[in-house]
C-alpha cells in the first residue's frame, strides 16, 4: 500500500505540466541597492561596462593580442582585463594595477596557497619574463588554492603570475585554475604578456 501510494505520488509529479503563460502580480519595495540605472545602455555597455569593445585587441588602457582560445569577459573594478580559458572557463586570467611592493604582492599570492612568503633574496632568484615591453617577475606555485574566507578551498590548483612595474605602480597578470589546465595555457600566457602594451 505504501509503495502504491509512493508510485501514485511519483506519477502525479511526472504529470505536472509547465504553464506557457503566467500572470505576474508580485512586487517588492525599492531598497538601498536600487540605484538610478544608465538609460538606453547598449549590449556592449551592459555586458562590458566602460571597457572597450571585446575585440581581443585592447581594453583597460592596454593593447594586446588575445590568445585564440581565451575568452575575454567583463572587466571589473579590480580586473582591468579579464579572461577565461580551459574547459568550462576553469582558468581565470586577469590584469590588475595595484599598490604595494613586489614582495608584498608575491607574498599575497603565496599566502593563497598556504606557502611561506618569499624573502627579497627569493625574489631575486625568481625567473623573469617579458611583460609590457619590460621585464617582470614570473611567480609560479601550486597546491590548495584559498581564494579567501567564505569561499571553498580548491585543491590541485596552480598559479602563474607576472609582476611588472609601471610608472603608476605595480602591474600584475595572474592566471589561476586547475594545475593541468594552467600548465596547458602557459605558452599562451607568455605570448599574451609579451604582447601587452600601454594605451588602447
Amino acid at each position: 500500500m505504501l509503495i502504491a501510494g509512493l508510485v501514485l505520488l511519483l506519477g502525479l509529479g511526472a504529470c505536472k505540466e509547465k504553464p506557457p503563460e503566467v500572470v505576474v502580480t508580485e512586487t517588492r519595495e525599492v531598497n538601498t541597492s536600487d540605484g538610478a540605472p544608465k538609460l538606453m545602455a547598449t549590449s556592449q555597455e551592459r555586458f562590458r561596462g566602460g571597457a572597450g569593445a571585446p575585440t581581443g585587441k585592447s581594453g583597460g588602457g592596454y593593447s594586446f593580442t588575445k590568445p585564440a582560445a581565451w575568452q575575454q569577459v567583463a572587466a571589473t573594478d579590480m580586473r582591468l582585463l579579464n579572461f577565461t580559458a580551459g574547459e568550462q572557463g576553469a582558468v581565470e586570467i586577469y590584469l590588475s594595477e595595484t599598490g604595494g611592493g613586489m614582495l608584498e604582492n608575491v607574498g599575497r599570492w603565496f599566502r593563497q596557497f598556504a606557502k611561506e612568503a618569499p624573502t627579497q633574496e627569493d625574489l631575486t632568484g625568481m625567473p623573469r619574463m617579458v611583460v609590457l615591453g619590460g621585464e617582470g617577475i614570473l611567480v609560479q606555485t601550486s597546491g590548495t588554492f584559498s581564494a579567501g574566507f567564505g569561499r571553498p578551498e580548491a585543491p590541485g590548483f596552480a598559479l602563474a603570475g607576472v609582476i611588472g612595474q609601471t610608472k603608476a605602480g605595480v602591474l600584475t597578470v595572474k592566471m589561476v585554475g586547475p594545475e593541468a589546465a594552467v600548465q596547458g595555457e602557459m605558452e599562451a600566457f607568455r605570448d599574451f604578456c609579451a604582447s601587452l602594451q600601454p594605451g588602447e
Binding site: 503566467v22 505576474v24 512586487t27 517588492r28 525599492v30 536600487d34
Partner: peptide, 18 residues
Amino acid sequence: TELVDGKPAKINVVETKY
C-alpha cells in the same frame, strides 16, 4: 520597474518559481 525621474519606483518581480 518604471523609472520616475530616472529612479526606480515599485518593482514588479517575476519570481524564481516561474
